[in-house]
Design a protein around this nucleic acid. Structure first.
Lengths: 205, 205
DNA sequence: GTCTATATACTGATAGAC
DNA sequence: GTCTATCAGTATATAGAC
């Protein structure tokens, strides 16, 4: 059950790990750093995860879950352009709202490309890669739909999707949550980020 | 002098370090990895650089130099739109051509935010940050010029520039140089990357 | 379930031979 | 200028007390 004590403990640790991985990156973060951030020692962390790698994968998974949670409830909309607009706005908001987790997602599975992973870890890594692809496909489908219904236009849909998502996801580099930032501030920023991207694929006669 | 034996040795090491940092990231790369990639031992590397951090900074510097080299020779062009188009195309090409170095630039100075740095290292870091800002300003100026001369339009120039550059720079995540890739292939890819971004800020009546 | 203490392994950097 | 050998510091992970 989602609200169990054990789940709560795990989530608390995942959040602390996300913070540390965001600030310092995976390799520079020591398990002791995560523990210190929680005000405990690493004994607690090793009680819930066997290795640092497994903890990272769970933070990554939590980040992906937040990305999907932002776009899954969206309606399809009247045409491809409207659908893509909804997706991009929701994704921009998610990148800002969950900046900590998404910075970890951006470090991605790349960090473990050269690690020796167990079979189980390898499977987890494959699942994470698959979920990233699935996420990108949501945007690709909206773009293709828009090209079919005449509301959108572009030369190379699969490259274009990567560029559009990149424009939003690069915010992990320059954006930092601000003290006293309101919901409205973030909504405005998200809109300003999406505008040039959406305008770039809209069909103009 | 640029072609001296010592300079050549340094460049060779910087290239090997760039390759390793690109593949594994800064922290996961051991000095022994860089040496192995050169077919020597770390004695050679420590003869030219006092620390791994200083080596990283030189790779970063080399990456920034390539970015500027791609856009510095460009003419201003007849208007802001033409100027920005030239900048974006050149930058897209540079991101693909120098993928290895630019992947290191993207890791940026962030990697050393929590390191204890010497005064000299701190200064080098400041210079690198300043050069990144200067680079972004080139694009911002073209955009503002275009808004003034009526060839470009956008809501928030400084956010828009970050989004446009992000769209191109995110290619370090998904692009991998392909075996047998021609100049034309890369030029085409660059054009496909730039198209939606440029279209997004062009003024349509 | 969490802590302390520690084993074990790794890696940045140095010293000194050649 | 490059190599070999090694030190010293650090970090993951474990064992066992509480």
């Amino acid at each position: 059950m989602a609200g169990s004590r054990k789940t709560w403990r795990r989530d608390e640790i995942v959040a602390a790990a996300a913070h540390c991985f965001m600030q310092q990156g995976y390799h520079a973060t020591r398990i002791d750093d995560v523990a210190a951030h929680l005000g405990c020692t690493k004994g607690r962390i090793y009680h819930y995860w066997p290795t640092k790698t497994d903890l990272f994968f769970d933070v990554h998974r939590a980040g992906m879950a937040r990305l999907f949670a932002a776009v899954d409830p969206l309606p399809d909309g009247p045409n491809g352009a409207a659908q893509l607009a909804g997706l991009l706005h929701a994704h921009a908001r998610a990148m800002l709202d969950h900046h900590t987790y998404e910075t970890v997602v951006a470090q991605g599975v790349q960090v473990h490309r050269f690690d020796r992973l167990s079979d189980v870890q390898q499977q987890v890594m494959s699942d994470l890669i698959a979920s990233r692809d699935r996420f990108e496909t949501l945007f690709l489908q909206a773009l293709m739909r828009g090209m079919a219904d005449g509301s959108l236009a572009c030369e190379n849909p699969s490259i274009t999707v990567k560029v559009l998502l990149g424009g939003l996801q690069w915010s992990i580099i320059w954006y930092r949550p601000q003290q006293g930032e309101t919901e409205q501030d973030r909504a405005d920023l998200a809109a300003q980020m999406v505008h040039p991207l959406l305008h770039g694929v809209k069909k103009h006669d």
